[in-house]
């Protein structure tokens, strides 16, 4: 069952630029003919470079922005026409700005949201107790939001977005600026919520570890077009980014010469060889072991950054 459906959605902006006295108006398509569906309970990583159209898509999905073309259904309704009705069924976290009230203690913000969203007292108390425990908010409830650290505030914001049991949650850069431990805890929490509540999660991020940890599906957008939609593994292999063989020899030797792999770096006894994803590693290893004093060896998968960099450099719109 799909909870989000986009069909040929476009969003154009008019950009006025001024050169000398002449003003020229130019139409920019932030999102161009975008189609996809998201099923209930999916966790989708929505990634792309700055200005690719991620935020524009999210704003259309929440009903803030009206699309200039195409049709959108979220939880069965047209977001821009039923914005306030839809609001009760979605949760949004804007990584860069808070949805909480700056001068209010965290618990007062939560109390206001309870009334605003019309959540029953019992349900609110139950959710609050869960989130306080999972997000470790106990000591923060009486602290005004402006005094919270970025990581604490983000935890508060995420709890706020989930208190009304939304079916769909949009998270825009939820881990931006957080330390490694906070990031890990947040990812764990989101995975838990998705599992327990079947909450659909759309995550935009620049942190590819977020995707790695959470998302069963990745969508890559660039210049308003969808350039990839599928699994993370598929994303890696689709671009046939080279894999790396890290070889530790017994001594510093000249670069290894074998068929099917090339040395990219020599660091004393350690040598780095790259080979295409399509080549099997086993024969390469056998060859090296037969002719060189091999001590240790690791195979590094292409980093997701390098895969995405290749997509951006070399976009091939998906056909589906």
């Amino acid at each position: 069952m799909s909870v989000i459906q986009l069909e040929n959605v476009s969003r154009a902006f008019t950009v006025t630029s001024r050169t000398g006295l002449r003003r020229t108006k130019r139409e920019v398509r932030a999102v161009d003919n975008l189609s996809f569906t998201v099923g209930r309970g999916e966790v989708v990583g929505y990634i792309g470079p700055n200005g690719a159209g991620k935020s524009t898509t999210i704003k259309m999905l929440t009903g803030i922005l009206v699309p200039s073309g195409g049709s959108i259904r979220v939880a069965g309704v047209d977001p821009s026409r039923n914005r306030m009705k839809l609001a009760k069924r979605i949760g949004v976290v804007f990584g860069q700005r808070t949805t909480l009230w700056w001068d209010l203690p965290l618990k007062d913000s939560f109390a206001v949201l309870q009334k605003m969203y019309g959540v029953s007292r019992a349900r609110h108390a139950e959710n609050l107790a869960t989130f306080v425990e999972l997000l470790d908010l106990g000591d923060l409830l009486d602290v005004p939001v402006r005094q919270l650290s970025l990581g604490q505030r983000m935890r508060g914001d995420i709890a706020a977005a989930l208190l009304h049991d939304p079916e769909i949650v949009y998270l825009d850069e939820p881990t931006i600026g957080l330390d490694i431990i906070s990031k890990a805890r947040l990812r764990e929490f989101l995975a838990q919520v998705n599992k327990d509540r079947q909450t659909t999660i759309i995550l935009t991020t620049h942190d590819l570890d977020d995707i790695e940890a959470l998302c069963s599906r990745v969508m890559v957008i660039d210049h308003g077009h969808k350039v990839y939609d599928g699994t993370l593994t598929g994303l890696r292999s689709s671009q046939s980014a080279p894999r790396t063989l890290v070889v530790d020899l017994a001594a510093s030797l000249p670069p290894i010469t074998i068929d099917g792999a090339t040395v990219t770096k020599v660091d004393g006894p350690r040598q780095y060889l790259t080979f295409p994803t399509t080549t099997s590693a086993a024969p390469l290893v056998a060859q090296i072991a037969a002719t060189y004093p091999l001590q240790d060896l690791t195979i590094a998968e292409p980093t997701i950054e390098s895969v995405i960099a290749r997509i951006y450099a070399n976009p091939a719109p998906v056909t589906d």
Binding site: T62, G63, I64, A87, F94, Q96, T99, M116
Partner: peptide, 10 residues
């Protein structure tokens, strides 16, 4: 951009 925060509420 804080206006967006108001627009996502019911």
């Amino acid at each position: 951009g804080e206006l967006d925060v108001w627009l996502i509420r019911p």
